[in-house]
Computed example of a mutant assay.
Amino acid sequence: MLKNIIQGIGIREVLESAIREFHESGPINMATLEKLSLIKIHYPDIFSEYEAKILSVMGLFYKITKPKSFIESVYKNLGNTIEDQFGKPFTPMQASAYKSISTKKFYSFSAPTSTGKSHLFRDLIKEELHDIVIIVPSRALIAEFYSLVVELVGKEVLVLQFIENINQHHTARRVFIITPERGVELFKYSDEFEIGLFLFDEAQLSEEPIRGISFDAFVRRTEKSFPNAKKVFAHPFVSNPEAQLTKHRFFKNSSSNSFKQNNVGKVYLSRDENGVFEYFSPFNKSAHVKCEMDIVESTLKMMEQF
Rank of each mutant, 00 (worst) to 15 (best):
E208W: 02
Y189K: 08
K155A: 12
L205A: 10
P236R: 07
R182C: 06
F233Q: 01
T222Y: 06
L186F: 13
I213V: 14
V184G: 10
L245S: 08
G183W: 01
E223C: 00
V175C: 05
H248M: 08
V159H: 06
N165M: 15
N263P: 04
K285I: 10
I166W: 06
R271F: 02
A203Y: 00
D216G: 02
K188Q: 15
F259K: 02
F283M: 01
N274I: 05
F218H: 05
D272F: 00
L205W: 01
G212F: 09
E207N: 14
R211A: 04
I178Y: 02
D191R: 15
F280D: 11
R211C: 05
F251C: 07
Q161P: 04
G265I: 08
N253R: 05
K230N: 00
F162C: 12
F176W: 00
F259Q: 00
K231Y: 03
A203Q: 09
E151R: 12
V219G: 01
I213A: 07
S190C: 12
K266Q: 14
G183D: 08
L197H: 01
L158N: 15
A229F: 13
K155S: 14
R182H: 12
E223R: 11
K231E: 06
Q161F: 08
Q244W: 08
G265Q: 06
V267K: 12
V175R: 00
K266C: 12
G275M: 04
F198H: 00
F200P: 04
F226C: 09
R174F: 11
F251W: 08
E164R: 13
E223Q: 08
A229D: 00
F259W: 09
E151A: 13
G212N: 02
K230S: 03
P282W: 00
T171C: 12
P282C: 09
R182D: 10
N284F: 06
T171A: 12
S255P: 03
L269D: 09
I213M: 09
A234Y: 03
R182Q: 14
F259L: 05
N274H: 06
E242K: 11
L245P: 05
V238A: 07
R173P: 13
K230A: 07
E194C: 14
V153W: 09
N228M: 09
F215E: 03
P227R: 02
A217I: 13
V149H: 04
G212K: 07
D216Y: 04
Y189R: 10
D201V: 03
N263K: 09
H248E: 03
K260T: 11
N263M: 02
F187E: 04
I178S: 07
R174W: 10
E151V: 06
R211E: 03
S214I: 10
L148H: 11
K230Y: 01
D272P: 05
N228W: 02
R174M: 11
I163Q: 06
F277T: 08
H248V: 04
E194S: 15
V149R: 04
V159R: 03
H235K: 04
Q244S: 14
N240A: 12
F251Y: 13
N284G: 02
F283E: 07
F162S: 15
R249K: 15
G212D: 00
Q244I: 12
